[in-house]
Write a protein that binds this DNA or RNA. Structure first.
Length: 120
RNA sequence: CGAGCUGGCCGGGCGGCCGCGUGACCGGGGAACCGGUCCCGAGGAAGGUCCGGGCUCCACAGGGCAAGGUGGUGGGCAACACCCACCCGGGGUGACCCGCGGGAACGUGCCACAGAGAACAGACCGCCUCCGGUCCUCCGGGACCGGCGGUGAGGGUGAAACGGUGGUGUAAGAGACCACCAGCGUCCCGGGUGACCGGGACGGCUAGGCAAACCCCACCAGGAGCAAGAUCAAGAGGGUGGCUCCGCGCGAGCGGGACCACCUGCGUGAGCGUUCGAGGGCGGCCCGCCCGAGUUCGCGGGUAGAUCGCCAGAGACCGCCGGCGACGGUGGUCCUAGAUGGAUGGUCGCCCCUCGCCGCAAGGCGAGGACAGAACCCGGCCUACAGGCCAGCUCGUCCC
């Protein structure tokens, strides 16, 4: 699970990331990533959106748990101050953790700008 | 052994690595918070939200009309539309199962299709008397055609055709009359707390179904719901501290930024009383009563956040006593989820069960293992569910 500091817990953060952030999609999910223009010292935060289209409650919680565990290993690589929202698509219900992780990595690499430290 | 009925229970197990939530303890800190150890952490339906309660707030002047729920009897329960036992009706050889089980000889309404006729019944075929005509005749009458009538016994339709069987009677027939039977009503006797059961007498000969159609009868019921509700509190300025990031410096450190906590003062005006008052509330409507946006004047502290509510309870387990049973009484032991963008997991290995393929076999490989995720808490109902375990009972067959 995600440590508390990396959780996105307010609705404004969600709308901000979805409206302003860069977007990249895969077969199972869509990623919205907003990165701050200037330096920020807030830890990067991540949130999940799993709608009822994905499935009933049991399926939705399973998808959310898998995604949270996958995000735990990746949220540290994001630039500080970033807001990441991962939206699950209906095919995610049938996907394995491995498949979800591959999709997540592909989408993240496409919408991440040059990492803060690497470009310099 | 085979087929079946009923009740109860389980609903994958073990381990490695990496994590999350509540709480307790220890350490650091003024606090926020950080680190460590330990405990606990989804279901039989957590589901549908269909009933009943607890809890909370509001309403508790009244009267009239309208309107909801329940429906055999007796118990159980905090309460129920639930549970138990019994009664009645129906099904099964049986164990047992099913029942939306008050009133249709008060009123209104409906009863498809078929059928002549479907609720003050009804003449299509048929049967019968009489009248007219034609024909035949062994002169008694008969056949056919038409007409006025009689007939609900027979045919045929239907879920259902206005009791059944036998007789008297008649032109033919009919509860028109009689006997028995079924059913109905009234009364009496006996049994039962009661629903009701058993028996007898008399009566009129017969009365269709639907009340989850209106309706009538009896009983029950204020409204809304934890987003209930309660408490503290916005926001931005300054200061101090914590934590973290960036820059500079060899370094102690310095400067800047985000967030959090505390202190300090600044400060928008929620609310209350009052004048006039659109409108609203009192479960729906009317009378009646109450409140009241906005506005005049006056007095003055709170919606976006946080905390509580929020988990020790009609509590769980094990005995003993009473009861056919639901259940009640009593003794002991235990503490057993409380999240809030929402924890209760992710991943890997072994085992178990089922299926498929390969193999003589040991075994190997692959696929699958249901329904489903707490959100204030209980008692029920209903619905979904791979597979499995236990107990009691019934019927059939065989053996002793």
């Amino acid at each position: 699970m995600l440590p508390r500091a990396h959780r996105l817990t307010d609705g404004r953060g969600f709308t901000h990331a979805v409206r302003r952030g860069r977007r990249a999609g895969g077969r199972h999910l869509v990623v919205h990533l907003w990165e701050p223009a200037d330096h920020s010292e807030v830890p990067a935060r991540a949130g999940l959106v799993v709608s009822k289209a994905v499935g009933p409650a049991v399926v939705r919680t399973r998808v959310k748990r898998r995604l949270r565990h996958l995000l735990r290993d990746r949220v540290g690589m994001l630039r500080t101050g970033s807001i990441l929202v991962v939206r699950a698509l209906p095919p995610a219900a049938e996907a394995s953790s491995q498949a979800l992780g591959a999709d997540l990595d592909r989408a993240l690499s496409r919408c991440t700008t040059t990492p803060a430290g690497a470009s310099a």
